[in-house]
């Protein structure tokens, strides 16, 4: 069983892992930083505080299940998994190298801790619904979490899954929407608006809670809404308002850094900015 980090530790850890992700992508010369930085606090809090997991026994039957449907946030997902103890941290710099267990998008058959291979958007929503059904059928208390991108909810299959979750009253299912408002080719608003987000999910039969997705306190509180073994029969979506590229000023609130690699000069600046946050948190 993992040691739960305190909120203060979580805050600092999220910044440490952000720095790690930056260095990994710089080293690999490829990868998605914008949507990784927006999810840093969410994943850190989920893995190192809120979910019940055992990295020494990744297949432990009573664990909570976490699906990363927005698989392109691998640069932050992998450091979170390593920090949780699923594999050695020194493997992180093999990201996107040929033969590496750290594929461009997560592969469940290569890397321990990865519950499901992902990348093609929207599919994690359906998988998490199926898992929530299967766990409930087998009287498990485990919860199922699924991290979705905002642009990802333009995929029709997300809404198919949303309907099924409501139909079966899956109170053990928690979606987290990383609402960073940018996707590959522009703002979500300009590419294909998804608002009104909360109203859409409510009308699909979901409970919604809207939080600051960079506040570990708010994230932890939102995760505490669904307890293991809850008998509530409504699925929950946590709408986490985040900033794409969070932590590096020139990467923030733009689609330009969705999948771009920093130059040497940009890298110096980026390290400086993230490190400043680390100094503040120490």
């Amino acid at each position: 069983m993992e040691k739960k980090l305190t909120l203060k530790e979580l805050e600092r850890t999220a910044w440490e892992l952000r720095l790690k992700a930056l260095k990994m992508v710089f080293h690999a010369k490829s990868g998605h930083l914008g949507g990784s930085f927006s999810a840093a606090e969410i994943l850190t809090t989920l893995y190192l505080h809120s979910a019940v997991l055992d990295s020494d026994n990744p297949d432990w039957g009573a664990r909570d299940r976490i699906y990363i449907s927005k698989g392109h946030c691998a640069p932050i997902y992998y450091p979170v998994l390593a920090k949780s103890g699923y594999f050695p941290e020194d493997e992180l710099f093999t990201l996107r190298k040929m033969g590496s267990r750290l594929q461009g998008h997560p592969d469940k058959n290569r890397l321990p801790g990865v519950e499901m291979s992902s990348g093609p958007l929207g599919l994690g929503a359906s998988v998490s619904v199926g898992t929530a059904l299967g766990l409930r059928q087998q009287n498990s208390d485990s919860r199922v979490y699924c991290l979705l991108g905002d642009g990802e909810t333009q995929e029709g299959v997300v809404w198919e899954a949303a309907m099924t979750a409501a139909k079966y009253g899956l109170g053990n299912l928690i979606f987290i929407l990383d609402y960073n408002r940018y996707q590959l080719s522009g703002s979500v608003e300009s590419v294909q608006p998804i608002e009104p987000v909360a109203d859409k999910w409510k009308s699909f039969g979901w409970r919604t809670v809207s939080i600051n997705g960079h506040s570990v306190r708010e994230i932890a509180e939102a995760f505490s809404i669904v307890k293991r073994g809850d008998t509530v029969n409504l699925p929950l979506i946590i709408i986490a308002n985040t900033v794409k590229g969070k932590g590096v000023s020139f990467m923030e609130n733009t689609s330009a850094w969705h999948g771009k690699v920093p130059s040497d000069t940009e890298m110096v600046l980026a390290i400086k900015e993230i490190s400043a946050h680390l100094t503040n948190k120490s």
Partner: peptide, 18 residues
């Protein structure tokens, strides 16, 4: 219902619980 992508995804999710 009439949702074949979801059909497969839900089935796969069920399989991940054994």
């Amino acid at each position: 219902g009439i949702a074949e992508q979801n059909l497969v995804g839900v089935g796969v999710g069920l399989s991940l619980t054994g």
